[in-house]
Structure formats: structure tokens, C-alpha cells
Amino acid sequence: MATVYYTTDHEYVSVDGDVAAIGITEHAQEALGDIVFVEVPETGKSFAKGDDAAVVESVKAASDVFAPVAGEVVEVNGDLADNPSLVNEDAQGKAWFFKLKLSNKTELDGLMDADAYAKFVEESA
């Protein structure tokens, strides 16, 4: 069973053992609107926490997706290149961007749980 963490940049980190699936939250996809382009990183690439890792673009704007924690990319979601609107349909399900093998699990301690994130979204509205 995966444990899901959230960042103040509206990304989620769904951790299952040593591997975490990263994507943008339901709130983020709604704020962005119609997604027209997604660029995911290459498998094998290593990120430090906070690195630019992926790109998501709506009709109007481009946004960076950061690596919320450090790790090596072990899998990417190939469906998003051909079907970027999957992010609008199922942001926190089928539309994960990439999976990281975590290099420092203690970094997860600095992230929010679902309740804290919901509160964060409410307060920043």
C-alpha cells in the first residue's frame, strides 16, 4: 500500500517501498486547465531534491515539475506524450509523470500528508 505525500508546489509523491511515483495534484491540474503537452525525464537520470524534472503545459502556460525528493528515474509514463489530457482526467492515478528510486527517504519527512495539503490549498486560495 502506497503512502502519498504532497509538496507546496502541488506535486504528489506516492511512495511504495523504495520507489515513489511523482505527479501533479488534482488541484494543480484544475488550476492549469487543459493540458496540451507533457515532457518526462529520461530513465536513468538522477535528480537532487528541487531539480527541474519534467514539464507540463496548458493552452496558455508552461510549468516546471520539480523532483520533490532526490533519486534516480526508474520508470516514466510514456502515455502522457501522446495523451497529455490524461493529466486532466486522472492526475493522481494514471497520469503519474515518473518514478524515482529514493536516495534519501528522510526527505519525505519534510512533505505534507493529505490533510495538511488540503489545508494548505484552502489557505492559499
Binding site: 494543480a28 502556460a61 510549468s63 516546471d64 520539480f66
Partner: peptide, 10 residues
């Protein structure tokens, strides 16, 4: 995630 365009989230 951060937006690079000011028009969307101004």
C-alpha cells in the same frame, strides 16, 4: 510545480 507564465496565475 511552478508556472512560468504570469498570465495564467496572476
Amino acid at each position: 510545480m511552478s508556472s512560468n507564465s504570469s498570465s495564467e496565475n496572476g
